[in-house]
Design a protein around this nucleic acid. Structure first.
Length: 420
DNA sequence: TCTGGGGTCCTAGGACCC
DNA sequence: TCTGGGGTCCTAGGACCC
């Protein structure tokens, strides 16, 4: 048998589940978790879904339901979620040597050649994760990653399956695909599904039997891969080692609109510093710096403005001072007075591993402070990421985001440990 | 009052080369 | 009268994912 077996492990309502681990009173209650700036709902418990609260909806649009039904609302606590994710992933790695961590709450594993019953294996994985971390997961199993995704949806929806669904022994995958809307297929988003629907292709079974050349034209090369995977032919392998990233950005919606250049500069200096600290932690240097600013696209009362620009450096660097200065020079160029800025960001790209960057013939005036950077990183790692800032940030709080109801860092700070 | 953040990949079109 | 063909590289914009 040369057919492959993939499993997708996906945490159920991950952010809500993390909060429940440390506060069991939340069990069986409607709970939601919010995006940054307390803007949108990005995780919902089963009970909250049942109230009709949709994924991604802005908080203010469901205020009524939340009040009436006493829905519990959390600002997102990424420090906690990242640590809980690490624990879940560690357990999954023990069940398969071949794992791809796909997102904070999802991982693919390769089960090809496992001699045990796949469903039993998945059930024991699920029980172990629940027992050791308190996080409930669903497992979908299929001969391709795309089919494992389909199986995972079924495992989540059908309570009788106890969180595990395998399509490996399934004799009639087509009838399952017929019940899967094209929008639910991994890799088919809003635009593509509308386009397919207009052509009369509304479910995965119809898509599976379309002509290859037609699919290539409609959905481009990745779309053809998706459809090939629906047919049971694996084209998307497990990506175990994370390849070097191609870009790194820090962007935020400001807690309130900024009007003055000085306030915008302070926020953007912080974004530049955080992005630089991240690439430095990964041993990278950047050769291209971009910055963007925009007003709110939802504010009908004001004129919309958005602009960005980038600068290519003559010499790649990971020096915070140099990168902040470059970012601020872009900010001064794209900033226009008289607008209410609501969002900004700094994007770094054109990376090299430190020590492998090309040397420049003309960069003798380049000033860098590697020892200073190392010291700052050590301090910030130990005492919290914003402990040492650059003077250009001015310890600014004007742009700071809303975070009305955020739980503490139960697992990453000794002083915040839960007392029992 | 109030609408997230961080990524990847593909394509079309323009500039440029000989 | 009549104005090629083949290629690379870069960028902006749009699609997708969680």
């Amino acid at each position: 048998m040369n057919s492959k077996v993939f499993a997708l492990i996906d945490c159920n309502a991950f952010y809500v589940s993390c909060e429940r681990v440390f506060n069991p009173k939340l069990n069986n209650r409607p709970v939601v978790a919010l995006s940054n700036n307390d803007g949108c709902i990005i995780a919902r418990s089963k009970e909250a879904k049942a109230l009709g609260i949709k994924m991604g909806v802005p908080l203010f649009k469901v205020k009524e339901i939340i009040k009436k039904e006493k829905v519990i609302v959390f600002s997102s606590n990424y420090t906690l979620y990242a640590d809980m994710s690490r624990r879940v992933m560690n357990i999954i790695s023990e069940f398969s040597p071949s794992i791809e961590i796909y997102s904070i709450d999802e991982a693919f594993i390769d089960l090809t050649g496992v001699r045990l019953n796949y469903e039993n294996y998945a059930k024991s994985l699920r029980e172990t994760i629940l027992k050791y971390t308190g996080i409930p997961v669903s497992v979908g199993i299929g001969s391709t990653k795309t089919l494992a995704k389909v199986a995972n949806h079924i495992a989540k929806d059908d309570e009788e399956l106890e969180g595990v669904c395998s399509l490996i022994e399934c004799k009639d995958i087509d009838s399952i695909l017929a019940k899967t809307k094209v929008f639910e297929i991994w890799g088919v988003g809003r635009q593509l599904s509308q386009k397919l629907n207009r052509q009369g292709i509304c479910n995965a079974k119809l898509l599976k039997y379309c002509d290859d050349r037609w699919i290539r034209k409609m959905m481009s090369v990745n779309g053809l891969k998706t459809v090939t995977e629906l047919r049971g032919v694996s084209c998307l392998p497990i990506q175990e080692v994370s390849v070097t990233r191609k870009s790194c950005c820090t962007t935020r919606t400001f807690g309130r609109p900024l009007i003055d250049l000085k306030d915008v500069e302070q926020a953007m200096a912080t974004f530049a510093r955080r992005a630089t600290e991240r690439i430095r932690g990964e041993g990278l240097v950047t050769s291209s710096i971009s910055a963007f600013l925009s007003t709110s696209p939802f504010d009908r009362g004001s004129r919309y403005y958005s602009n960005s620009s980038s600068i290519t450096l003559g010499y790649p660097t990971c020096d915070t001072i140099c990168i902040i200065n470059t970012a601020l020079s872009i900010v001064r160029k794209i900033f226009k007075g008289g607008y209410k800025y609501k969002k900004g960001g700094v994007l770094l790209s054109g990376f090299y591993n430190k020590g492998e960057e090309p040397l420049s013939l003309f960069s003798s005036d380049q000033k860098e402070f590697p020892n200073l950077m190392l010291t700052i990183d050590n301090i910030n790692q130990r005492y919290g990421s914003d402990t040492i800032q650059m003077a250009s940030e001015c310890h600014s709080t004007k742009w700071k985001q809303k975070r009305r109801n955020c739980t503490q860092s139960y697992t990453t700070q000794v002083s915040k440990l839960l007392l029992v």
